[in-house]
Computed example of a mutant assay.
Amino acid sequence: MCPYSWDVPGGVQFHIRDLAEDLIRRGHEVSVLAPADEDTPLPPYVVSAGRAVPVPYNGSVARLNFGFLSAARVRRWLHDGGFDVIHIHEPASPSLGLLSCWAAQGPIVATFHTSNPRSRAMIAAGPILQPALEKISARIAVSEYARRTLVEHLGGDAVVIPNGVDVGFFADAEPKSEWQGLDAPGSVAGGAARAATIGFIGRIDEPRKGLPTLMRALPRILAERPGTRLLVAGRGDEQEAVASLPEAVRGQVEFLGMVSDEDKARLLRSVDLYVAPNTGGESFGIILVEAMSAGAPVLAGDLDAFRQVLDGGAAGELFPVEDADALAAAALRLLSDPARRSALRAVGSAHVRRFDWSVVGGEILSVYEMVTDGAASVAPDERTRLRGRLGLTRG
């Protein structure tokens, strides 16, 4: 069950899509219920629950689906599916997740994605949500910070299983010559032959993605490395995004708009440095894993979730959140140090194996097997290990 609109891509939707496709590759039958507009192209395994409406949520805007008609569609989907296990994402949100919790019978697995340590709304709604949440057989959190939000606001606990990435898809992508810079084949060490390229992927007009911080750092970067280009992929007002920049340097920012998964991978394979200047509200950081999978050195804001994904800073460098001067200094240092960038690539490429769907999908499947009194396809020792991590018993 997907709580957010399928036609406006985001981390939760990508997680659900990739998990569904991993399970299908393993031979399982999968159905996904998700809000979607009538003209949205849907994979064969996705069932539309109708149109969603935008709602401000956790520093962003979530497109949710809720109400009597949605509840009827949830009940019909559950009735027609005859599922062995129901996997609900964000069951505490006012969306299909909560409706599914109310309506579902049988084994329920829930994944909690949100990290919001000061959610007054979640605290206030706790007593109302508890009867539905008590039906959940096993809980998964995508990070320690999502788990902490669950524990502090709603009680109970969860096993931490991170978001997954198809590491090979990003690692094998073909770089695009027009997006390449210092590290392109034939470049001279130190950047004499080619200028550097910095990458950013995210919604331009969503403040917590941090593009304004990167824009404030850009003039200093360009003052020392005049040919540097910033490649920005994502939707939003491009003119507003560069409005704070001096007119003379605006041409160094290239907006690519929304890009396909293939072009996202090619972009990450091409840039000399990927910058994630996010300001908060992140429970994981899937873009960091994608960047490391593609071999891009990562420079990220020092959020708790990002620090965890980057192995405490070993797999990527961190700078103080919203500190444009520190971002510029770190970017200049990395762009001038090919050996350091190479070292980050090596560490990142090894670190991301933990997040490959071959690992993550197997752990989620182990939870399914545990709550449905497991089939022989999952090793008994893996079920025992996960049962201990969950701290749960059947019944």
Rank of each mutant, 00 (worst) to 15 (best):
V12A: 12
D22Q: 11
G27A: 15
S31W: 01
V32L: 01
A36W: 06
P44T: 13
V46E: 03
A52E: 01
P56Y: 11
A71G: 15
A72K: 08
R75C: 15
R76Y: 06
H87R: 03
I88N: 00
E90A: 10
E90W: 04
E90S: 08
S100M: 14
A103C: 11
A104F: 02
V109N: 01
N116R: 13
P117E: 10
G126H: 05
P127G: 05
S137R: 03
R139K: 13
R148H: 12
T149H: 02
V165R: 00
A171Y: 09
K176I: 09
E178T: 06
E178I: 08
G191L: 06
A193G: 08
G199V: 12
R203L: 09
I204E: 07
R208K: 14
T213L: 08
L214N: 07
M215F: 04
P219Y: 09
A223L: 05
G234A: 08
Q239A: 07
L245E: 00
P246A: 11
E247W: 10
E247G: 15
A248D: 07
A265L: 15
R266I: 13
Y274A: 14
Y274E: 14
V275G: 08
V275T: 07
A276F: 13
T279A: 10
T279G: 06
G295E: 01
A296E: 00
A300I: 12
R307W: 14
D311C: 13
A314H: 12
V321F: 05
A326L: 14
L327F: 07
S336D: 15
R341E: 11
V347D: 00
V352F: 06
V360Q: 02
T372K: 04
G395K: 09
